[in-house]
Computed example of a mutant assay.
Amino acid sequence: MFKSLAGIAFAVGTLSGAQLAAATEYRIGLITPPPHQWTVTANAIADELREATDGRIDLLIFPSGQLGNEAQMLQQLQTGALDFAFMTLGEFANRDPNYGIFLAPFIAEDVPAARKLLSGETAQELLDGVDKFGLEGFGYAMAGLRQIVMRDEVQSVSDLSGKKIRTVPLAPELDFWTGLGATPTPMPLPALYDAFANGQLDGMQIDFEGTWNSQYYEHAGSIIESNHMMFPMIAVGSARKWADIPPEDQSKISEVMQRHLDELIGKYAEIDAEYLEKLRGTDVPVKTVDRSFFGDSIDRWYEEWRTKTPLLQQLEAEAAHE
């Protein structure tokens, strides 16, 4: 009897060791810090995949640009040095203007409208199109709607003229700020706090979540609730690495990732409201504006970008039917 039990224990131990040896590690890179919802979602995906596959799929999270900036991560994905990434659309839009259309000012009036556009036909067409970059596309999510945080108090759009505004290096966003007479200043997110605190920057385009969690409001003289732009994220993988993943694991990764991405978008209506309420409790004045605040600069932006990408009008048509 003792020998039988010992044999069973040895067999179980051997099986566990084999399962452990069969575990496959994948890496996913992000530029967002650990508290950000993109990183929180990546960790939730990793936890579910690990549990659902008894540890066979181990997704390792690298936040805060640990693996490099987005241009570097894109190159790693293309070569197969990186497995997955949550990325802004910057590197895509700078290679193909069509990917910039989701940055169209006021294309989505709120988070539910943005969610519909990011699951619509135009979005799917562009998601399928990432194969030309050597990538596999899984879906979209977003951060909160874009707001404006300034060192000085702002009464009108003219107060933004000549100001250095931190942006991401994304052509549609840069054009938006140039059209306002401001100086868009791309800067890595980890460097933003110090640059804003020491006056290297006059302001930033960001969401309420980042404004609160990174405490940018501590050096702000004005917060403008504008909701003027959505800020999509695209989840992609290396096509080279994806081709080597067993079909059953491909199916599980896709299903779990797509579900969490959609849930993430839906959360942002509540997230935006929660952090706006917190910011209203500070000493920094919060000014609420609409499209008219920006004058005719929005119309000029659309005129320019309709000539750059025919898909913009297609997306506008989708938005009009929401």
Results as ranks from 00 to 15, higher is better:
residue 199 G to M: 11
residue 199 G to A: 03
residue 199 G to W: 10
residue 199 G to K: 12
residue 200 Q to E: 09
residue 200 Q to R: 10
residue 200 Q to S: 14
residue 201 L to T: 07
residue 202 D to W: 12
residue 202 D to R: 09
residue 203 G to A: 11
residue 203 G to K: 08
residue 204 M to L: 14
residue 204 M to S: 09
residue 204 M to H: 01
residue 205 Q to Y: 03
residue 206 I to N: 12
residue 206 I to A: 06
residue 206 I to L: 12
residue 206 I to E: 10
residue 207 D to W: 10
residue 207 D to R: 09
residue 207 D to Q: 07
residue 208 F to E: 04
residue 208 F to C: 02
residue 208 F to H: 07
residue 209 E to Y: 14
residue 209 E to P: 05
residue 209 E to T: 06
residue 209 E to D: 05
residue 210 G to N: 13
residue 210 G to L: 09
residue 210 G to I: 04
residue 211 T to F: 03
residue 211 T to R: 07
residue 211 T to E: 09
residue 211 T to D: 09
residue 211 T to K: 00
residue 212 W to I: 00
residue 212 W to M: 12
residue 212 W to C: 05
residue 212 W to D: 13
residue 212 W to K: 11
residue 213 N to K: 13
residue 213 N to V: 07
residue 213 N to I: 05
residue 214 S to P: 00
residue 214 S to F: 06
residue 214 S to T: 02
residue 214 S to W: 06
residue 215 Q to C: 01
residue 215 Q to G: 04
residue 216 Y to G: 04
residue 216 Y to M: 06
residue 216 Y to E: 01
residue 217 Y to L: 06
residue 218 E to I: 00
residue 218 E to P: 00
residue 219 H to K: 12
residue 220 A to E: 02
residue 220 A to F: 03
residue 221 G to E: 04
residue 222 S to N: 10
residue 222 S to T: 02
residue 223 I to H: 10
residue 224 I to Y: 07
residue 225 E to C: 00
residue 225 E to A: 11
residue 225 E to R: 11
residue 227 N to A: 13
residue 227 N to K: 12
residue 227 N to G: 11
residue 228 H to R: 04
residue 228 H to S: 07
residue 228 H to M: 14
residue 228 H to E: 06
residue 228 H to T: 00
residue 231 F to C: 04
residue 232 P to N: 10
residue 233 M to F: 13
residue 233 M to L: 14
residue 233 M to W: 11
residue 234 I to C: 06
residue 234 I to R: 11
residue 235 A to E: 03
residue 235 A to W: 13
residue 235 A to P: 01
residue 236 V to H: 07
residue 236 V to E: 09
residue 236 V to L: 14
residue 237 G to L: 05
residue 237 G to F: 05
residue 238 S to I: 09
residue 238 S to F: 12
residue 238 S to R: 08
residue 239 A to Q: 14
residue 239 A to P: 03
residue 239 A to E: 05
residue 239 A to R: 15
residue 240 R to H: 08
residue 240 R to K: 15
residue 240 R to Q: 14
residue 241 K to L: 02
residue 241 K to V: 03
residue 241 K to Y: 00
residue 242 W to H: 03
residue 242 W to V: 02
residue 242 W to Q: 04
residue 242 W to P: 04
residue 243 A to S: 14
residue 243 A to N: 04
residue 244 D to W: 01
residue 244 D to H: 07
residue 244 D to N: 14
residue 244 D to E: 15
residue 245 I to C: 11
residue 245 I to L: 09
residue 245 I to F: 08
residue 245 I to W: 03
residue 246 P to I: 04
residue 246 P to K: 12
residue 247 P to S: 09
residue 247 P to E: 12
residue 247 P to G: 03
residue 247 P to D: 13
residue 247 P to R: 08
residue 248 E to V: 01
residue 248 E to Q: 13
residue 248 E to H: 11
residue 249 D to Q: 13
residue 249 D to A: 05
residue 250 Q to G: 01
residue 250 Q to R: 15
residue 250 Q to L: 07
residue 251 S to G: 02
residue 251 S to D: 07
residue 251 S to T: 11
residue 251 S to E: 15
residue 252 K to I: 08
residue 252 K to P: 01
